[in-house]
């Protein structure tokens, strides 16, 4: 049996599909392709791929609708491909259950990294102790260590750090983070997020003005990069 993971590519541009196919096959993935939303959905149903790469600009349906339909039953990761300068659209897709996004033009290295992060995500969620270089987060004891020394964090700061770290590599939208940490009534209060991210960076980053752990995804949200 073929042990390679199957990735479904839904994109109407043959050049992009070919590029993805070559890149992914060279990196030990198996690819299947659809050039419209309808075929994409039915292929997802018959092959149950490990991951779907979905282009938002499809000829037959709005990419967001395709995503909605997929998310009714499909639980594996979906990575969105989109044109640049469409932050609002990307945020909508992420809030509707897309795991990550890439804007065209994208670097293939970046694509592969996102795929790796998305496919291993479920395993990480279970761990009680997360380690990233000199940073350790103990989710049970609510403690974080830097170079084996305890970092003084307020409860909000710890919750924020834990949320980000548990979703390592994944982009979390501003709205999602605000909802998770402060609650539903606070999803517009981006000022909280800015202040606390800045504060947290001062405590966990080696150089807070050049963060390597808490990465800003301009106009979209934040990503915790553990590498």
């Amino acid at each position: 049996m073929d042990a390679r993971q199957t990735i479904l590519i839904i994109d109407d541009e043959i050049q992009i599909r070919r590029l993805l196919e070559i890149t992914l096959t060279a990196n030990d993935y198996k690819t299947i392709e659809a050039d419209n939303g309808k075929d994409g959905c039915s292929m997802a149903a018959s092959f149950n791929p490990a991951l779907i790469i979905l282009d938002l600009g499809l000829p037959d349906q709005d990419g967001l609708d395709v995503l909605n339909k997929l998310r009714e039953w499909f639980t594996n990761p979906v990575i969105i491909l989109s044109a640049r300068n469409s932050e609002e659209y990307i945020i909508k897709a992420l809030d509707r259950g897309a795991n990550d996004y890439l804007t065209k033009p994208f670097r293939t290295g970046e694509l592969l990294a996102r795929i790796r992060v998305a496919t291993r995500q479920n395993s990480r969620q279970q761990e009680a102790r997360l380690e990233f270089g000199n940073l350790t987060i103990d989710l049970d004891k609510h403690l974080a260590y830097k170079n084996a020394e305890i970092i003084k964090l307020t409860s909000t700061e710890f919750s924020l750090l834990a949320l980000m770290a548990k979703n390592e590599g994944r982009v979390l939208t501003h709205t999602y983070i605000l909802k998770e940490i402060w609650g539903y009534g606070y999803t517009e209060q981006t000022q909280y997020l800015r202040v606390f991210i800045a504060q947290l960076r001062k405590k966990i980053e080696d150089n807070p003005s050049k963060p390597t752990l808490l990465i800003t995804e301009s106009g979209i949200g934040y990503r915790f990069s553990g590498i």
Binding site: S155, T156, Y192
Partner: peptide, 9 residues
């Protein structure tokens, strides 16, 4: 202000 105002709290 917002430390006192968190769900996490």
């Amino acid at each position: 202000f917002s430390n006192a105002n968190t769900k996490a709290g």
